[in-house]
Design a binder for these strands. Sequence first.
DNA 1: CCGGCTTTACTCGGTGCCGAAGAAAGTCGC
DNA 2: GCGACTTTCTTCGGCACCGAGTAAAGCCGG
Lengths: 391, 391
Amino acid sequence: MGDEMTRRQVRGDLTRTEILALLGAAGPLGRAEIAHRLGLGAATVTEHTRRLLAEGFLRELPPRTSGTGRPRVPLQLVPDAAHVLGVRIAVDHLAGVVVGLDGQIVDEFRLPLRIADAPVPLLVETLLREIDARRHTTPVRGIGVAVPGMTDPESGVVRLSGIMGWRELPLGRELARRLPVPVLVDNDLRASTTAELLFGMGRERDDFLVLGIGDGLGLGVVLGRSVQCGADGSSGEFGHLPVDPAGPRCTCGNRGCLQALAGQSALVEQARRAGVSGLGEGLPGLVGAAERGEPAVLAILAEAGALLGRCVAGVVNVLAVKAVKVIGEGHVLWPFLGPSFEAAAAAGVIEPLRDPEITVAPWRDIEHARGAACLLLARGSSELKRFSSVD
Amino acid sequence: MGDEMTRRQVRGDLTRTEILALLGAAGPLGRAEIAHRLGLGAATVTEHTRRLLAEGFLRELPPRTSGTGRPRVPLQLVPDAAHVLGVRIAVDHLAGVVVGLDGQIVDEFRLPLRIADAPVPLLVETLLREIDARRHTTPVRGIGVAVPGMTDPESGVVRLSGIMGWRELPLGRELARRLPVPVLVDNDLRASTTAELLFGMGRERDDFLVLGIGDGLGLGVVLGRSVQCGADGSSGEFGHLPVDPAGPRCTCGNRGCLQALAGQSALVEQARRAGVSGLGEGLPGLVGAAERGEPAVLAILAEAGALLGRCVAGVVNVLAVKAVKVIGEGHVLWPFLGPSFEAAAAAGVIEPLRDPEITVAPWRDIEHARGAACLLLARGSSELKRFSSVD
DNA sequence: CCGGCTTTACTCGGTGCCGAAGAAAGTCGC
DNA sequence: GCGACTTTCTTCGGCACCGAGTAAAGCCGG
């Protein structure tokens, strides 16, 4: 009961981060403008910016008069005042990025690497090498790790990752013990949801959903500007929404999970069974078939889109959230899923919430790595400050 | 953006209320025990209880030694230090209660009254009479109103109430203008969810769901000890979860809403169509038929239970909430809905969340009135203190 | 060019919360 | 019966946030 404590400890930092994120996204702003946009009091902004200036994360620009009144003093981000490394774990590779305070990617890498069997030593070795390589260019002050699977961000424990074959793996603790900078671990979709909160939809909205179409289906939930984690960080399991008790068996053991009906491999399987020829391997093959106008594939995708839309509409009805962002590998299917998704989502939502805003952005798996980096940024500047760069 | 302001203003009061609620539910406790149970710091409890003692809401009992250590000073609630009136609006009647600080009902009433056409004057007249009648016994310091329909608790506007035929009705403002005590208006299910947070499940859990089976189906969502309201207070529309696009038309205009498949009137209709004889009117008739062991009815109810269970499981998967409470008129159907509900809910939930705790409590519609009263209690003691009793 | 206006920024007092340190008030061992 | 130990409660300093009041710094109109 009462996580108020934790929340409060972190809140001040979060506010400073939001200031940094805002300046990163919207360019130099006066203090009054910051206060207005973030819904903070002017006094609060004065206080925080004082600290951020002292820490070197911000600089003041010459005053700029805007018509009448005292001129504002624009504050500008110093993006290179700190860099953070984010990695996304996948089955056969690691995707990594280095971002500045503004969340912009300044460097990226991709390493073919199967870490499932010995995650800790392989990650430690790799991360140390990457940190070291950047010692003189973009020194790293923190590391975020995005895991494909159910992960508790508080404890850093990977509860369950089917793809990686992990269960109750205390990744956060083990990495923190062996790396010279702070480490945060979270589920990949929630990491990207955090990025979205800081630098994406969160710019304009306090509440939104992030639908992740990847190996599985996930749903990130942001309510009141906070990313919901649920008990043990096990929220967001959208793929295992029970849809049809008579449906096909899912990897989780249940029958008729959403994922078993509209997940990527389910779609490929359906296409194959419908006798579609020339299906290459996996997702690209499916996209190819759809682009060729293969009617069976188009029908399958349209139906899957409608199903997804209905399920999202259900969540929208319950939580009264008006915006949804779609991310993940599967976004390449969106041209074919999208129309029926949007129709179903709009139709399935009660009238006052009608026409939820649905956004799809181009996506690379590097985005999850950026999300991982944003976990650090969301924890705030003081954490970054304490740990000076490695040398 | 940033409702932090509002949240903070209200938070202190909420904490005091939680202290009062805890003492109401668990009897006299020492300060250390309060701090522990509410997850607060000891300093905070000292501060708050000082105020509550000064305001007369609490009294100290003689110190009681418990083995070793300094004896604790138990603090006892003074339940009659303030009373709050709560009413639930229904189509053909008003249900009302007066509760003390501990949320216990000290008085109740039920008035046959159709207020749909002239809600403000009828409510004002009725409430003034009820306040006046209690002037010398249990003076009323605030009023909560529970509305069957989508209602924004912030503004007090009833967005949409199909049953009452209201739309964008600024009930809160109009009542506040005409009544001598503070008035809060909210959706009925959310009101009961608030009661549950203060005096029910919230005792042990920070996150839970409240499934309301009434005229419609609603879902109250509590995350991190706060009742989720969504944009414009329009959250919780569980009944309009789109389940079957080919299903029967719902009152909301869509097809195959959960409510159109498993709502009370849908169930009655299904039973009628199945040729069940001796169906009295509405709910009691259905219960009667089920109790007679009518196989068609039992099958219908079992299927509805399973459907409800699956839908709740979906929400549980997404939000990672482990406890569900079932309330509402429809609880009388629970003996027949329950088994399949529980099975479906357990089956539809991913393994780490397996076996969500499902609780059903006996229920009278007076509970919604109590929920309405709890809206006031949740807003805190200082609001009650400011407005002395009417005289 | 000097006071009024506007907008920006800062200061100050107040609230809610915390952790750490210290005071208080008992039991217990010797 | 006196110090040690334990538990409870309070005090204190500190952080995050706010609103209101004040200072600052430019424009503008007479």
